[in-house]
Design a protein around this nucleic acid. Structure first.
Lengths: 230, 230
DNA sequence: AACGATGGCTAATCAGATTAGCTTTAAGAC
DNA sequence: GTCTTAAAGCTAATCTGATTAGCCATCGTT
């Protein structure tokens, strides 16, 4: 019989496409083999096992996403950069829900893992965006983590079920961007600075640490930040 | 042989405990049966199948979480209420990572589904928190969605790997709360209101819809908001 | 033309979910 | 007290999907 002549890359690519088209839960050895026109056991010549394949798909996703974000950030700063970042991520997750789904739930422990490397790059881009945004170094870790939560939450929800929340999803997305923008812009000013609004900031807030001084930064290159890609 | 005399509730409870203790990926019919001291096929007298069991665990989680948040919000408003909400959710997810993990990836389509009901209640609590926070009705949907993304992102990341991001996670959590607080307080003021900061808000922001007027609200009881629990 | 690594295959195994069908308990009807 | 019967368990069997073992063909190299 004629050989297909596949590489690991081909297998991962097929898996990624399959996940996007049929849903991440359909990313199975059988479906991948079928798509490639080979039998299931042959896949094991190219990947270790299903977990390995999933992890490679996740790595590809984070890599692609990181490149897209880096490209989108060229020459931008402030709200412009924030908008570009979120828009890019949203577009990516919309186009590749299965790939993004693969990234959720991956452990990032081994520093030599390509997935960890790719995640670090993505977070570096976000950090650069925030730095150009005027976030102080002392706040950087907190800001990255906060933004990461919001972005990951948005992306995870979107990847999970395509956001059926009706027609005004675009507006909500824009609102979210403006929300983040304002939060970032006011975050490093003294606590009293935000304009007196219709708000009663009670005194007895349960257990929030003191405002606006970040001690003990976990140093640079803090790979622990990226405990989860995206 | 002696009967165990189990109910569906017992099975779900055992599954929830198992998921918390051993991790969501260990939530398997075999492990659940083992924990209950019965054989695997007997489980099918109490639940339809594994998907049903998972969904019930998710429902229990969202219900418990909703009750906890509702309790925590008693007599609070503003930053106090926001802090209570997030602190409660964080505590719940920390105590019950497996349960929370069960909620991610559930579809919420059928309005009669108990999971949908429970999710709606939780979102109602969050809406009440925001309303008491001074968010206009026209912005409510956007605010809920935004907050939901951040909360879900935080919870999902935490449930996935327990947040190994080093020692200052608490500080980041506090920072995030203050960030959200400031964002919410400044969000419904005219765009120019936020104090001129070290920021250059460029003009050419890619594609964000116009600021601060929300048209076409998806009416009340908008179950589509809860496309994902938590 | 031989060769050796590579990529593919069949057959078999294993794990986990699910189904079929039987048996016994235990709760209520008489 | 017995009788009946639905519910709750069980064993055995099936099915799906992942994985392993071991064989064979292809292809680039010598």
């Amino acid at each position: 019989m004629r050989r297909a002549g596949l590489s690991s890359q081909d297998v991962v690519a097929a898996a990624a496409e399959l996940a996007d088209e049929a849903g991440y839960q359909e990313l199975t050895m059988g479906r991948v083999a079928q798509r490639l026109g080979i039998r299931v056991p042959s896949l094991y010549k190219h990947v270790d096992d299903l977990a390995d394949l999933r992890r490679r798909v996740a790595t590809q996703a984070v890599t692609e996403l990181g490149e897209a974000v880096r490209d989108a950030l060229q020459g931008r700063s402030g709200l412009d950069a924030l908008t570009a970042t979120l828009t890019t991520i949203r577009a990516y997750v919309t186009a590749h829900p299965g790939r993004y789904a693969a990234t959720t739930g991956q452990q990032l422990t081994d520093p030599a893992d390509p997935l960890v490397t790719a995640s670090s790059r993505l977070l570096d881009s976000i950090a650069a965006m925030l730095r150009g945004y005027g976030i102080a170094d002392t706040e950087m870790n907190h800001a990255i983590r906060t933004l990461r939560c919001t972005i990951h939450g948005y992306a995870a929800l979107q990847a999970a079920d395509g956001f059926q929340w009706s027609a005004d999803a675009d507006e909500s997305f824009g609102w979210m961007i403006r929300f983040l923008d304002r939060g970032l812009r006011t975050m490093c000013l003294p606590p009293e600075t935000p304009p007196a609004s219709a708000r009663d900031a009670r005194e007895g807030a349960p257990d929030v640490p003191a405002p606006c001084h970040a001690d003990r930064l976990a140093a640079a290159g803090d790979a622990a930040v990226s405990s989860q890609p995206g």
